[in-house]
Design a protein around this nucleic acid. Structure first.
Length: 202
DNA sequence: GAGTAGATCCTCT
DNA sequence: GAGGATCTACTCA
């Protein structure tokens, strides 16, 4: 039974728990009739004003992260290092800038298209490994920031496939060393043994 | 296999 | 004007 996640899912209060639940869900993009999708196998929680690793830490509110302060269920896309587009899901209630960063997918639909977008010749574990590659392969760009996940261009579905607690592991987040003690929080969740997960294999 | 440095551009100060 | 929620390639062992 495949169903699209609705607003009630994104409005959950516990961003860490939701990050865990997002594993196994399917992220779908549909640009101009071209559909690509992948199962989420790695993601990170960003707990808003409490979290130094978040753009919204300490209530910092700018034109860029405005999306995170808005309604749940919207896409927040941010360009990092001038090269990488990072895709986030905004959660919780307006005024609470919680978000979940999708870091890795297991490719499902439109693999050929993903290969074209990333200039790769064949499918391997690097296609959707890491947040920069995820958005690149799905064709997500900063101009898509602010799109609703309840629309038909980008959304998340649940086909009933779930990972068990045994298959899910947590670890400190990646690339946030500057965040001090908060960099050590185990807010990163991933599926054990999946080749698309970034970091060390197995 | 592990560790390190460079790329590259938008956003905020 | 500085720095960043990263990736890749290259060096060395």
């Amino acid at each position: 039974m495949v169903k699209k996640l609705g607003a009630e899912f994104y409005q959950g209060k516990d961003v860490v728990k939701m990050a865990k639940e997002l594993l196994g869900k399917i992220l779908v993009t549909n640009w101009k009739g071209v559909t690509t999708s992948g199962r989420i196998v790695e993601c990170e929680a960003y707990a808003g004003v409490m979290d130094r690793a978040s753009h919204a830490w300490s209530g910092r509110r700018t034109g860029r992260n405005e999306i995170m302060f808005g309604e749940a269920g919207y896409a927040y896309v941010y360009l990092c290092y001038g090269i990488h587009h990072l895709f986030n899901v905004v959660t919780n209630s307006p005024g609470i800038p919680h978000a979940i960063l999708v870091r890795a997918l297991d490719p499902i639909e439109g693999v050929e298209k993903m290969l074209q977008r990333t200039n790769k010749k064949k499918l391997d574990h690097t296609l959707t490994r890491g947040p920069g590659n995820v958005s690149k392969s799905l064709g997500i760009q900063t101009k898509h920031s602010g799109l609703s996940l309840l629309g038909d261009r980008i959304f998340i579905t649940d086909d009933g496939g779930k990972y068990t607690r045994m298959e899910i592991a947590s670890s400190p987040r990646i690339g946030v060393d500057y965040a001090g003690d908060d960099a050590l929080l185990p807010y990163r969740f991933y599926v054990k043994g999946n080749p698309n997960v970034s970091g060390k294999p197995r």
